[in-house]
Design a protein around this nucleic acid. Structure first.
Lengths: 224, 224
DNA sequence: TCGCAGTGTGAACGACTGTTTATATCCAGC
DNA sequence: GCTGGATATAAACAGTCGTTCACACTGCGA
């Protein structure tokens, strides 16, 4: 990574600030304060821009105005910086889904709520979602297993909804082997990928509702 | 990267061999022979398994039974190894799309052919598609621009189809700003992400057709 | 048979890697 | 005012990074 010009440094700081705002929406991140919080926000900004693998401890600490050793007063290792971000993001998403699905009336309602919540999480601050989906694969093997398990759980929630709707004749999935899982993957991918191309400058009003409508079509939901 | 046990080495060689088979389907890759071809195949296997950023020149050449310097008899830099793979993959996809869209009768037919071709490219050898979508971001800035341009072109082909269908009343897209672009992104993502979860052990018969059917639903295609 | 292009080696280049250590500084609580 | 914990620094650790270079070996065309 090259030495950053002042203009770039300023942009990076602004980006880190935006990440930091998101931290308040997730307890496991919000409990960090002071230097630790600043480091994690800057890590998010750097990982987002250059990727985790391309961001060294020296890159990160220099951007924070620290020397490399200082990092280890706040995180046990470089891995754990990434893990803190990735786990935080997944906890936040899981909570949003649990809240959305707390009260539902039937598969159609459940699917609508799932899609809206899952899409909205990705659009609240797209770079955060993008960062997590992109970089979690670089976690250490043990930490990665934890995250993969969390992801599988979310997918299973959606599969259950589709299976129920399919059994009740509310949905007519595209046929084929593992129809529910295939459809679930389509839905999750559609929603999560919004973070890759959604332009925050355009109005987001009704965006997640339109996605829910698209998904209802996709799963062949009974009209009305 | 740790020293590889013999069993792992064997698996890696087998994977590299599978990548090499794919090279024959794309002229820009097929013209490589001998060591250069072997190196590129091994690079594909390693980048697929560990990522480009985590694969050093020494990792790559050691896996090929060479010393680091030998690489530079075949590629001008480490960057260009990745670029050869990524560009080859994009050229192959573009050619498949061009062939599929050479003769079409109306937007519905065009969309069906687009989705089938684009999905099939991703399922021919999912790891190759996966590798390309995942790693192209690590190209040097100049090379990345080239690839981004190719990707945009493919997207525009799809947008044109959706726009035409929408204008003729054949499709009824989910409303909203930039409806065509939003729908195009949904479709591209659905198709390309198959490479991430498709299990080659399950039968692929009719897979792309089912995806085309799902997409027709998604864009609200007129019945029949 | 010579010569040369193509291909490989091994050593070296300076720079960068994640982490640990001893040491210094600060500030809150007694 | 003193003490102790939290936090920072500078230096060093043992490696690894991508790349270059002088040199050796190979096999093919003249």
């Amino acid at each position: 990574m090259s030495t950053t010009a002042d203009a770039t440094t300023e942009q990076l700081g602004k980006l880190a600030g935006q990440f930091e705002l998101i931290f308040d929406t997730e307890p496991s991140l919000a409990r960090l304060t002071g230097t630790a919080r600043g480091v994690l926000a800057m890590a998010a900004a750097l990982y987002y821009q250059h990727g985790y693998a391309a961001t060294s401890v020296r890159d990160l600490t220099r951007a924070c105005g620290l020397t490399p050793g200082a990092l280890y007063n706040h995180f046990p290792s470089r891995d754990e910086v990434l893990f803190a971000l990735v786990e935080g993001g997944h906890l936040r998403a899981q909570r949003a889904l649990d809240e959305a699905l707390a009260k539902t009336s039937g598969p159609r309602d459940a699917l609508t709520k799932f899609v809206r919540a899952y899409t909205e999480i990705h659009l609240r601050f797209p770079p955060f979602a993008q960062l997590i989906h992109r970089e979690y694969v670089h976690l250490s093997e043990a930490r990665k297993r934890e995250i993969v398990q969390r992801r599988r759980r979310m997918r299973e929630q959606l599969v259950d909804i589709l299976r129920a709707g399919s059994a009740q004749g509310v949905f007519t999935l595209i046929e084929g082997p593992h129809a529910e899982v295939a459809s679930a993957m389509m839905v999750l991918d559609m929603c999560s990928r919004t973070s890759e191309w959604f332009n925050p400058k355009q109005p987001a009003d009704g965006f997640s509702e339109r996605y829910a409508a698209a998904v209802l079509r996709l799963v062949g939901a009974r009209l009305r």
